[in-house]
């Protein structure tokens, strides 16, 4: 394809670089497998789904490795927060791209970037001091799935808004002008031209935001209550996979430590599953 010598060199370098990035993923998965090998050998996969409780220290026969409630919690948290963040983010991007006055149009992305730059522990602190007491006044204990969803939604909002905004900005203006020339009302243009044409970009934004929601640790640890149970309502405290690792890794030993690496693998699986679902959705969406 590229016959000259300098092209060959560039091709070789970029090829190597892309293999390095792929290899990092393989190495991480391999590392998780090696570190969790002890529990796979002694316990097997099934008990992670069927055991009633999570108390992984001690003997393998008496220890319990039920991860299922935490998988459910991680999924519910991710889905809940994206359901909250996606409409707000896309709406804000629409306003910033098409309706806002020039000044606002320039300031808006900067403000949202700043929102995205706030460290997760600060969101967690705000959640713990402001949000949790508010929810608690309505339905104790306050630390809950709901608190986690709200905090994480705010955290992933910038990802959704900024990526969607840049998708809108890349749309050819001729598309909008033609639609306007056909006499379609602005609402109609948004609904039947802009949004369908940006569908692929919006899905990418949502996908990135969801993976961040699943991986979020510190803020979730602070506001979700960390009780291991499948939630019966949005007000139930839950523990996510990430919180489980962060909460217990510091002093975990042997089987306990190994089980936490298995938690990491479960987390990878959940993310992979979400990515696959999103890919499939996007495949269906097609292009305008």
């Amino acid at each position: 394809m590229f016959p000259s010598k300098s092209d060959f060199l560039l091709r070789l370098t970029t090829c190597l670089l892309s293999w390095v990035s792929a290899l990092i993923l393989v190495l991480i998965v391999w590392f998780l497998f090696v570190e969790s090998e002890l529990v796979w050998r002694e316990v097997g996969v099934l008990r992670f789904l069927t055991d009633d409780r999570w108390s992984p220290s001690g003997d393998f026969s008496s220890a319990q490795f039920g991860l299922f409630p935490m998988i459910v919690a991680s999924l519910l948290l991710a889905v809940g927060s994206i359901l909250l963040a996606a409409p707000i983010g896309v709406g804000a991007a629409l306003f910033a791209a098409y309706y806002a006055p020039r000044g606002v149009r320039q300031i808006f992305p900067r403000i949202v970037e700043l929102l995205g730059g706030i460290p997760s522990v600060v969101y967690g602190l705000w959640g713990l001091v402001v949000l949790v007491p508010l929810i608690s006044a309505y339905h104790p204990p306050g630390t809950s799935l709901l608190a986690g969803i709200v905090v994480v939604a705010i955290m992933i909002l910038p990802t959704v808004a900024l990526l969607t905004l840049s998708t809108f900005q890349q749309l050819p203006t001729s598309l909008i002008h033609s639609a306007a020339a056909l006499g379609i009302a602005p609402t109609g243009i948004v609904r039947s031209v802009i949004l369908p044409a940006s569908r692929s970009g919006i899905m990418t934004a949502v996908l990135l935001a969801v993976t961040r929601a699943v991986g979020e640790t510190m803020a979730v640890l602070m506001v979700c209550g960390n009780v291991i149970q499948a939630p019966s309502s949005p007000f139930s405290p839950v523990r996510t996979l990430t919180a489980n690792i962060a909460l217990e890794m510091a002093y975990a030993m042997q089987s306990h430590r190994s089980a936490l690496f298995a938690t990491g693998l479960a987390l990878m699986l959940v993310v992979t599953l979400l990515v696959l679902i999103a890919e499939q959705q996007r495949g269906k969406a097609g292009h305008v």
């Binding site: 993923l25 890794m249 987390l267």
Partner: peptide, 19 residues
Amino acid sequence: MKRLIVVCLLVAVSGCVSD
């Protein structure tokens, strides 16, 4: 797209290996 998947996975696991 494959690269995006890789990035997503890395983001998700970075939390569990920072110990």
